[in-house]
Design a protein around this nucleic acid. Structure first.
Lengths: 215, 215
DNA sequence: ATCAGAACTGATTAGATCATCAGTTTTGAT
DNA sequence: ATCAAAACTGATGATCTAATCAGTTCTGAT
């Protein structure tokens, strides 16, 4: 009655594999929590394994050292958020709106997932030229909007740097001074970014204030 | 012949004071060099005092710990650059140009002072709401441009977050991928920022391409 | 039920860093 | 020239951290 495992020998991931994956994910989750609140150097591996409720020695079954763990943790955070954005914007037709909605939703992280917001605000700039996570998705969306004739920019990389930088600046300020920023201010900046990308004044305002998917 | 000290007892800073200041500045300079290349945690106090050619124990005559030193070093960097910007833009009449020129000159740091650029790219976001350094000067310039009717924005803080974030994103990308960015791309982004602040398309383009003071 | 392999565990060891402090050098006054 | 105060110096000991490894527990197959 209690045993509901459907894979005795057919399915690939065995119980052992699942246990290993669970331990690894516990460590990554603990690292994500640390990333959100402190710097990576201020925390010992011991503290991480304690927080993950994992034996100290087990750490080295999964990661070569602290750096490797935090790299995996950041990748985990960004990939998770990137997949969410892809899902939420899948139904939008206007590529300019896809970009704007992704931008605004990422700003909303300050309220919906403060931990993710903090990780992003702290380390986001370092991943501007990464080949995984958010940067390649954002570049893809920008290029689509350019190809569709919605954005008018010379260099997608410069555009991304500007848009991503603005967003991270907003996140930083929002986290530090919640009294200065709110959703309206976030949308206002999104509006400015659209304008930066060549949209008309009116069109930028309209798109940046459309209802957000999944809201 | 060789002795040219003009203050035997009249002037305030004695030789002792000057020696102390020199030692302190040597430590700060070493910290600035470290800040530009590595993280603060990856370097021991011993390495810093060696680089500064100062005895290890002397460190504690000036700073309570590593954090205090790096705080002073960052303040030193930002204050120096802020003063330089104030000097260079003192003769400009249009407050929008003052802001644009400061923004572009700070981007140029990648070539003129790569070390400062690296410090800024790494830590700039953390100083968005500082009451000294660059943030208060930038806010001052933004407010002046608003008062003069040149900028049209609702919230100076949001505007600063956007403009500063864009700049730091550009700096980051420029430092990591020098092949993607150049002075022209920098000016292009400055143009977009001006547009973000409410300037007309043509006016933004013109101002962002004026010759820079001190060039 | 028994067994071999895989993953987990935490006490131990080796290495590094920090703050202290007793002694030395420099400075400015007599 | 001599002296007291201030700044500098680096060896020392206490503290902390990372990585190892011998032993234990869990898993899947016979």
């Amino acid at each position: 009655m209690t045993s509901t495992d459907p894979e005795p020998s057919a399915g690939r991931p065995s119980r052992t594999d699942r246990r290993k994956a669970r331990t690894r994910q516990a460590l990554i989750d603990a690292a994500r929590a640390v990333l959100a609140e402190r710097g990576t150097a201020e925390v010992s591996i011991q503290q991480i394994t304690d927080a993950a409720d994992v034996g100290f020695g087990s750490f080295y079954n999964h990661f070569g050292g602290k750096d490797e763990l935090f790299q995996a943790a950041v990748a985990d955070v960004l990939e998770e958020h990137g997949r969410l954005l892809d899902e939420l914007t899948a139904d939008l037709d206007d590529p300019a709106e896809v970009f704007a909605a992704s931008w605004r939703l990422t700003g909303r992280l300050v309220h919906t997932h403060p931990q993710v917001a903090r990780v992003l605000a702290r380390l986001g700039l370092s991943y501007l030229d990464s080949d995984q996570g958010l940067a390649p998705r954002a570049l893809r969306d920008i290029r689509r909007a350019v190809d569709a004739g919605r954005f008018r920019i010379d260099n997608p990389h410069v555009a991304l740097a500007g848009a991503a930088g603005s967003l991270l600046g907003l996140l930083h300020l929002w986290l530090v001074r919640p009294d200065l920023i709110d959703e309206a201010a976030c949308d206002e900046l999104a509006e400015h970014v659209l304008r930066m990308f060549g949209l008309s004044h009116a069109s930028a305002r309209e798109i940046a204030h459309r209802p957000l998917p999944g809201a």
